[in-house]
């Protein structure tokens, strides 16, 4: 599948547009319903993190989402120019402990990692943050 790009305003009401865009692309790349749902959810989580944390609900900011196939993988890139984020500071939570302490938030990164094959970050401090969500194409 050829690369496609969607640029959105940093608003939670855009999440449904993002999910529809990514789902269509994932279907076009041959994924089944279950995997399409996983990919759409992972991208929703990544965009929600940008809206909340990188841009802190500033709706004037923009998020760029690019989807495409490369080297046998389906790849979604999410780029923002907001507050940088240090992926090393995000600990993989112990879910049992997490649940028993009734904590809230921080579930998004855990979900992204569980739903995709790879989650990569490319951070240029103060300029640009990129998250890449990668899943192997169906054979």
């Amino acid at each position: 599948m050829k690369k496609q790009t969607l640029k959105i305003e940093s608003k939670t009401e855009q999440l449904i547009t993002v999910r529809n865009f990514v789902s269509q692309a994932a279907y076009a790349s041959g994924f089944n319903d279950e995997d399409v749902s996983k990919i759409a959810l992972a991208v929703d989580e990544a965009c929600t993190n940008v809206i909340k944390h990188a841009y802190q609900y500033d709706a004037k900011k923009k998020i760029t989402i690019t989807v495409g196939d490369s080297n046998g993988n389906f790849e979604v890139s999410i780029v923002d120019s907001g507050k940088q984020f240090d992926p090393k500071r995000i600990k993989q939570p112990d879910m049992k402990e997490y649940l028993s302490s009734y904590r809230r938030g921080g579930l998004g990164v855990y979900l992204m990692k569980s739903l995709m094959d790879k989650v990569e970050y490319d951070i240029e401090p103060g300029k640009r943050n990129q998250v890449r969500l990668i899943k192997q194409l169906p054979r």
Binding site: R19, L41, L99, R104
Partner: peptide, 13 residues
């Protein structure tokens, strides 16, 4: 039809 972690977080809260 759909739930993301923002929805799950409400149950936790």
């Amino acid at each position: 039809s759909y739930i993301s972690s923002a929805g799950l977080g409400v149950f936790m809260a």
